[in-house]
């Protein structure tokens, strides 16, 4: 085997090696601690996870968390897109929005969670929390994607008197799409995390967060970790989905 080929194989399988190493360390730590309540063995966690798959409650909780993730994502995405385009076209609006965006970014997540639990119901507070945290990230990313678009291209289109519709559909949208999808890719897993955190504190019914909280109260660490693995898998699947969409939509970047 050549040196180059070995390097390629190493690069390809290095993420799997990291996971394997992590599992080994986890197993060693579980053996060293020898207390399932603190660190259960990976085998126990995965058997609990398999048990979860067979329960209707698991799928209802996944469905509930996913629907809250999608709703909050859609609201944040739609609002950020609308306002970033409006702010790009009308700069005073962008200036007016900037303090709100800065405050939303700076406000401690826990303050938002606690306040929204006071103000809203346990079902709706995860939506508001996720929106308040995700929206400013999307807004800033979308605005800079619009702002950073090569002005020479836009000037060229205007000089050649290209129709506004064509400028939007053939220049703006395809050229900002890679940045937008990059932002969506990292935003979607953050969205899952925030929704679950909010569900834990708001004790939202039919949610992954609530069942994690139940596991904690029952001191069932293996089950808590099983839910954590499920949450990681969920985020990974969503990121993968966005990645596939990006791969298809921005084919021209790969030539």
């Amino acid at each position: 085997m050549t040196k180059d080929k070995a390097k390629k194989i190493l690069i390809r399988f290095s993420p799997l090696l990291t996971v394997a190493l992590f599992l080994v360390l986890w197993y060693v730590a579980a053996l060293a601690v020898n207390a399932e309540i603190i660190i259960p063995k990976p085998s126990l966690v995965f058997s609990d996870l398999i048990k979860l798959f067979t329960k209707a409650q698991f799928w209802t909780a996944i469905g509930g968390t996913l629907s809250r993730t999608f709703i909050s994502f859609a609201i944040s995405f739609g609002l950020a897109l609308l306002l970033s385009v409006a702010g790009f076209l009308f700069h005073p609006l962008h200036r007016a929005l900037s303090p709100l965006v800065t405050i939303s970014r700076a406000i401690p997540t826990m303050s938002i969670i606690l306040l929204s639990i006071i103000w809203l119901t346990s079902q709706t507070s995860p939506l508001l929390i996720a929106c308040l945290i995700i929206f400013p990230i999307f807004y800033a990313d979308f605005y800079s994607a619009l702002h950073n678009l090569d002005s020479g291209l836009i000037d060229m289109a205007k000089l050649y008197k290209v129709k506004t519709g064509d400028i939007i559909t053939r220049l703006y949208i395809p050229n900002i799409l890679p940045s937008v999808l990059d932002s969506v890719r990292s935003g979607i897993s953050l969205n899952v995390k925030i929704v679950i955190a909010a569900e834990v504190l708001a004790q939202t019914r039919q949610s992954m967060g609530n069942l994690m909280q139940v596991s904690r109260v029952m001191l069932d660490t293996a089950m808590l970790l099983a839910w954590t693995v499920a949450a990681i898998a969920l985020s990974y699947c969503l990121e993968l989905l966005v990645g596939l969409i990006k791969k298809y939509v921005v084919r021209w970047r790969r030539v």
């Binding site: 020479g152 291209l153 053939r170 395809p174 050229n175 921005v250 021209w252 970047r253």
Partner: peptide
């Protein structure tokens, strides 16, 4: 600058 749209 050539100002060719990279996506086209």
């Amino acid at each position: 600058e050539t100002n060719l749209a990279p996506n086209l």
